[in-house]
Amino acid sequence: MNIFRLAGDMTHLFSVLVLLLKIYATKSCSGISLKTQELYALVFLTRYLDLFTDFISVYNSVMKVVFISSSVAIVWCMRYHPLTRRTYDKDLDTFRHYILVGVSIILALLFHDRFTFREVFWAFSIYLEAVAILPQLVLLQRSGNVDNLTGQYVFFLGAYRAFYILNWIYRYFTENHYSRWISWLAGFVQTALYADFFYYYFVSWKNNAKLQLPA
């Protein structure tokens, strides 16, 4: 565990907490894409298939459980919770997310470490995670105004993979550890997708103004 990896995990964890706080405190999931949340639930469920077979550390297992359970809880709040499901901006959340799932399945079948059940699912989860934010970014762009907590949620979620890239660079030089090119490439794509959002986030932060995305 190095400082970049820890920073990555903490920003990831923080993004989830901010999202839960937003839904709980405002009793609203407006501005949040259910499509993106469903994709994340799928990402964690397919990546952490090793939860009960390979023990790495208590930290690792706890974080896996947190990410699986929080993503499933958020999907539940948006689909079924009597108070919050009505606040979901269904009409703005029209991204065809099954296309992302389909493309990720095809990529995982073509490019993986080994052709085993778990490795193919692992690669699938990496590809899907890289693009899972797209429905959320499209929803924000459509609604224009972004509330503070939603803006912070997306910001921390973007920062997380950027820290992971620094972590891979650090590990490459210190441990002779190399991440497979699959995670490198997907991680870069994932972080690049946030470039536009980061830009407007910093501009609004610098001007102490409300975050607004251009139409």
Binding site: D54, I56, D113, W168, Y178
Partner: peptide
């Protein structure tokens, strides 16, 4: 293959 993959990461 040589080297480890990233399965110790999240």
């Amino acid at each position: 293959y040589s080297g480890t993959t990233t399965k110790d990461e999240l």
